[in-house]
């Protein structure tokens, strides 16, 4: 079966919600089992006492990327049909910086805060409540942000196109960079004083 299955019409749309539950279940399980339900474990990446976020995040990205490249190459999936977020240069960077500040204060991101809630973390519940308030504030003040939100749209551009590289070369360099970071992380963890949590 050539993917992506739902856009190709292989799986009827009625199965959408069941599939969403199952994939979400796998997502939540992998996050919680890796330790992403704990804000203090997550924050270890920024202070150097526990690089679990770095390891899980980049391993996951590289695994999924390799799978997609391979399936596309073999003709088992049409990767050109996959959704690519449009790149609005300013809005993407400003949004990322604001999220980073929220990360440092809250210790979660949205997905991990849901995992925290699932096991009873009250701080994760407060973080999620904050998410709702934040989205509400953004929406209400949207006229103020609209200019930047819609400025400089480069469309669904790929990073290697932007850099003028071949896709496979970039993918290979990303894997090398990930392995390099994993090696560096292990080195830093040995140097940094352990934090009990």
């Amino acid at each position: 079966m050539v993917g992506p299955l739902i856009p190709m019409g292989v799986i009827p749309e009625t199965w959408n919600n069941v599939i969403a539950l199952l994939l979400g279940g796998g997502f939540g399980f992998a996050l919680e089992a890796s330790g992403f339900s704990s804000s203090r474990k997550i924050m270890g990446t920024f202070f150097g006492y526990d690089f679990v976020v770095l390891r899980v995040f980049f391993t996951a990205a590289v695994t999924a990327m390799t799978g997609i490249l391979y399936f596309d190459y073999m003709g088992w999936m049409d990767a050109s049909m996959l959704y690519i977020n449009p790149y609005y240069v300013m809005s993407a960077i400003v949004g990322g910086i604001i999220m980073g500040m929220g990360f440092a204060l809250g210790g979660f991101c949205p997905g991990t805060s849901f995992c925290g809630i699932a096991i009873g973390k009250i701080d994760a519940m407060f973080f999620t409540a904050g998410l709702f308030i934040g989205v509400f504030i953004f929406s209400e003040l949207y006229p103020l942000f609209e200019g930047m939100y819609n400025s400089r749209n480069l469309g669904g551009v790929k990073i290697y196109e932007l850099l003028g590289m071949r896709e496979t070369v970039f993918a290979f360099l990303l894997i090398v960079a990930a392995v390099g970071m994993f090696y560096g992380a292990g080195f830093v963890e040995k140097k940094v004083r352990k934090v009990e949590y």
């Binding site: 977020n85 993407a92 604001i98 809250g106 997905g111 934040g134």
Partner: peptide, 20 residues
């Protein structure tokens, strides 16, 4: 945590998505 969530909520709208 509440303040962090609030900022994350705002930032994710600018960036058209969050960490996930």
């Amino acid at each position: 945590a509440l303040a962090g969530g609030l900022l994350f909520g705002i930032g994710s709208q600018f960036a058209r998505g969050c960490t996930s």
